[in-house]
Simulated assay, not measured.
Amino acid sequence: MINPPLEQVVTQLKVLTQQHGLAKDVSSADEVQLLQLRQNVSLPAVWAEMYRLFSPRGFLISPPGNDQALYGATELEDAQVGYGGDTWPAGWIVVGGEGEYPLIIDTTSPEDTGVYLAQLEVVGMQKKRTILGWKARQLSATLIGFLEGLSTYIHQYYSADGPPFFVPENVRLEQYRAVLSTWRMQPDLEAHIPVWQSWLGIEHDAQTSS
């Protein structure tokens, strides 16, 4: 299975975002915004191209638990505030997520290395004190794979009538099974499905047909 072009995948996500009212604004970033962003953030070329096509403002999805963001070009610089220090790897850029579970990209490589879920984990002990550090778990091998996976989730999760959190459990499980089935057919995601489940709160029971 070959990945579709970036423009096609971005268009699909943009349509879903508008359809379900997931962002305050779905415009594209202009050259002035991208230039300003590049002066402060080491942005990979593929992400700059995405923002030329789709640069949402106030994008949020509402899985079980906390809302999860995807930042647009005008939000990206502010999104880095609060992350850093000795345990924060150089080259990590926050592109979405929330709080203790940000979505990051690794800009130390010139290639598109995908999107990761970063989590604080215990990395050692020092004088009986627990030392925490950031660990990255890969969600996708490429940006296109990540956008496809996100679109799949939105398409199913917001497909039922009414707010997602009011959907009956049996309907929710069927939605999750449909998501998992599609993810398994997406080449950049198959190996990373447990991380997606952790990020978006997809129950283990959804893996088994009723």
Score class of each variant (00 low, 15 high):
residue 6 L to S: 05
residue 7 E to D: 10
residue 7 E to T: 04
residue 7 E to Y: 03
residue 7 E to C: 03
residue 9 V to I: 12
residue 9 V to C: 03
residue 10 V to G: 00
residue 14 K to T: 00
residue 16 L to K: 05
residue 16 L to I: 05
residue 17 T to P: 03
residue 21 G to W: 09
residue 21 G to N: 12
residue 26 V to R: 00
residue 30 D to R: 08
residue 33 Q to L: 10
residue 35 L to R: 13
residue 36 Q to E: 15
residue 36 Q to K: 11
residue 40 N to E: 15
residue 41 V to I: 15
residue 42 S to N: 14
residue 43 L to Q: 01
residue 44 P to C: 03
residue 44 P to L: 04
residue 44 P to V: 00
residue 46 V to G: 02
residue 48 A to G: 11
residue 53 L to N: 00
residue 54 F to S: 01
residue 56 P to H: 04
residue 58 G to D: 08
residue 58 G to C: 06
residue 59 F to P: 03
residue 59 F to T: 01
residue 59 F to Y: 09
residue 61 I to L: 06
residue 62 S to K: 14
residue 62 S to R: 15
residue 63 P to S: 05
residue 64 P to M: 07
residue 65 G to R: 09
residue 67 D to N: 14
residue 67 D to I: 04
residue 68 Q to R: 13
residue 68 Q to W: 11
residue 69 A to H: 09
residue 69 A to T: 08
residue 74 T to C: 07
residue 75 E to A: 05
residue 75 E to T: 04
residue 78 D to S: 13
residue 84 G to H: 08
residue 85 G to K: 08
residue 86 D to K: 15
residue 87 T to I: 11
residue 89 P to K: 12
residue 92 W to A: 04
residue 92 W to N: 02
residue 93 I to V: 15
residue 94 V to Y: 02
residue 94 V to D: 04
residue 95 V to N: 03
residue 96 G to F: 07
residue 99 G to A: 14
residue 103 L to C: 06
residue 104 I to Y: 00
residue 105 I to G: 01
residue 105 I to M: 08
residue 105 I to E: 01
residue 106 D to K: 09
residue 108 T to L: 08
residue 108 T to R: 15
residue 108 T to N: 15
residue 110 P to F: 03
residue 111 E to Y: 10
residue 113 T to D: 08
residue 116 Y to W: 13
residue 117 L to I: 01
residue 117 L to N: 03
residue 117 L to G: 01
residue 118 A to P: 02
residue 119 Q to S: 13
residue 119 Q to M: 12
residue 123 V to M: 08
residue 125 M to T: 11
residue 126 Q to L: 14
residue 127 K to H: 13
residue 128 K to D: 15
residue 130 T to V: 14
residue 130 T to Q: 12
residue 131 I to W: 09
residue 132 L to Y: 15
residue 133 G to K: 05
residue 136 A to G: 10
residue 138 Q to E: 07
residue 142 T to L: 05
residue 147 L to F: 06
residue 149 G to V: 01
residue 153 Y to Q: 00
residue 156 Q to I: 03
residue 158 Y to C: 02
residue 158 Y to E: 05
residue 161 D to A: 11
residue 164 P to I: 00
residue 164 P to T: 02
residue 168 P to T: 07
residue 169 E to P: 00
residue 169 E to K: 12
residue 171 V to T: 13
residue 172 R to V: 13
residue 173 L to P: 04
residue 176 Y to A: 07
residue 177 R to D: 03
residue 177 R to V: 10
residue 179 V to Q: 09
residue 179 V to I: 15
residue 183 W to N: 06
residue 185 M to A: 15
residue 185 M to G: 13
residue 187 P to Q: 14
residue 187 P to G: 12
residue 188 D to A: 14
residue 188 D to V: 02
residue 190 E to H: 11
residue 192 H to D: 05
residue 194 P to L: 05
residue 194 P to G: 12
residue 194 P to F: 09
residue 197 Q to E: 13
residue 201 G to R: 10
